[in-house]
Design a binder for these strands. Structure first.
Lengths: 130, 130
DNA sequence: ATCGGTTTTGACAATCATTATCAATAACGG
DNA sequence: CCGTTATTGATAATGATTGTCAAAACCGAT
């Protein structure tokens, strides 16, 4: 049975409060700063659970770190992520979805998975950088 | 100045000989098995250089490992990769390319980069798995 | 409210890929 | 062939993530 602990809730809340994608390390650090004595391993486990249940999205940053984000829409979708501040926009991508599936099928590949994410600088950060 | 060492050439050759994407670790291991005394750090450096010069493609596997592949066509392109054996097909993706750029622009994002790769089981591995 | 079995936690060690260090070596122009 | 200087490679360092396991917390039943 799946138990309801304040730790899992804390991770859930922290994710909801975050503007965009965050790493497990960062999330743990900010929870600690807020006074929570939660352990690092627990944060990793909670995030993995959330991702497994579809309550959070996970992706790999360009540097290879695993990032997580609270996921409002239950369905499958992709993201437009600011490289600088982490702000995220959820993207509708049915076309691309179908393109990926069709491409895999055309070459006889089965069990297709895909990684489709767009990184960039959001308007605010673009202004700052220029 | 950029020097021409047998080590760099060995990495280049090993990449050319590989069927699909390989990790730096694997490449180093197979070079060692072939009798080459090349060092691990050197393999990493050579791969980073090749990727920087556009002579190799690099991407992150679903597990987060960095993978490299000799890159024939100089242009920008994407891949369909077998999760099991690493066999790779280069994909034409102009449509998706433009979709990514347009999506970024529509939301005011600048300096767009994207990660678009499809993983699956190639025909041969599909057969084996069933 | 208490009990008991079971899950979860958390400090710490272990793992794994990758990068930094730095003295020894080798490449290239002269 | 020589000297300068980039490159190598053994090893240590880093940093994220996962495994371990005893102690603590959760929850349904009493």
């Amino acid at each position: 049975m799946k138990r309801n602990t304040w730790q899992r809730q804390a991770v859930r809340d922290a994710l909801d409060g975050a503007a965009g994608f965050v790493s497990a390390q960062d999330l743990h650090a900010s929870l600690r700063e807020s006074g929570s004595p939660i352990g690092l391993a627990t944060v990793y486990r909670a995030l993995a659970d959330l991702a497994g249940e579809g309550d959070a999205d996970s992706l790999q940053s360009i540097e290879g770190e695993s990032l997580y984000r609270a996921c409002a829409s239950g369905g499958h979708h992709h993201h437009l992520i600011c490289r600088s501040c982490g702000t995220t926009v959820e993207i509708e991508a049915d076309d691309v979805e179908q393109w990926a599936a069709a491409t895999a099928a055309r070459h006889g590949f089965t069990a297709p998975q895909h990684v489709i994410d767009v990184f960039g600088l959001c308007p605010a950060c673009s202004r700052k950088a220029s």
